[in-house]
Design a protein around this nucleic acid. Structure first.
Length: 164
DNA sequence: GCCAACGTTGGC
DNA sequence: GCCAACGTTGGC
């Protein structure tokens, strides 16, 4: 059975892994997510072909940098089993893995980043529940509605000093 | 580097 | 199950 395409936001620190890195490698296992809610979105919510906005966080100009697609079903994050990895989880076993990920495939870099400032200025249109601009939000993976996806992308080709 | 916000852990 | 301590996130 198929279901309609869904849309997601995934954050990454560009110093660690940026849209340019994804462009270079083409496809990447989205490892290192160690938050249960984010894990559940990947494990239970995502399907191959879903749309992904890649958001650059914890950097000089935070914002949406590019688009990707979900390229695999969820499977255990290998780094949880690796004692040498910073993502190692001593409580995870191969029999009962704790952390799951999906592969993410590069689609395109935006012609310009959609900056957090702009996203905030459109908070009304995006809705109060929009996780990215919700107060104190730290989730690194969360759903985006089709309406939010469309509105966000419409900002790509708009003047930054906008007038509504 | 600061610090507010938040999730997780662990003692009880 | 409570909650204080702690670690992390992420904008600034």
């Amino acid at each position: 059975m198929t279901r309609p395409r869904r849309y997601w936001m995934m954050k990454s620190e560009p110093d660690a892994f940026s849209i340019d890195d994804l462009a270079r490698v083409g496809r990447e296992p989205w490892n290192g997510v160690r938050n249960y809610q984010a894990r559940n979105f990947m494990r239970d919510g995502m399907r191959i072909g879903d749309g992904v906005m890649l958001y650059h966080s914890n950097c000089k100009s935070p914002g949406i940098a590019g688009l990707a697609t979900v390229a695999s079903a969820a499977y255990p994050d290998e780094t949880q089993f690796d004692p040498a990895s910073p993502y190692h989880d001593p409580k995870a076993t191969r029999e009962t893995p704790r952390w799951f990920l999906v592969d993410v495939a590069f689609e395109r870099k935006l012609t310009r980043p959609i900056l957090l400032d702009e996203i905030r200025s459109h908070a009304d249109a995006l809705g109060e529940g929009f996780a990215l601009t919700a107060r104190g939000n730290r989730l690194s993976v969360f759903p985006v509605t089709l309406a939010q996806w469309t509105r966000l992308l419409s900002l790509e080709h708009r003047e930054t000093g906008n007038r509504g």
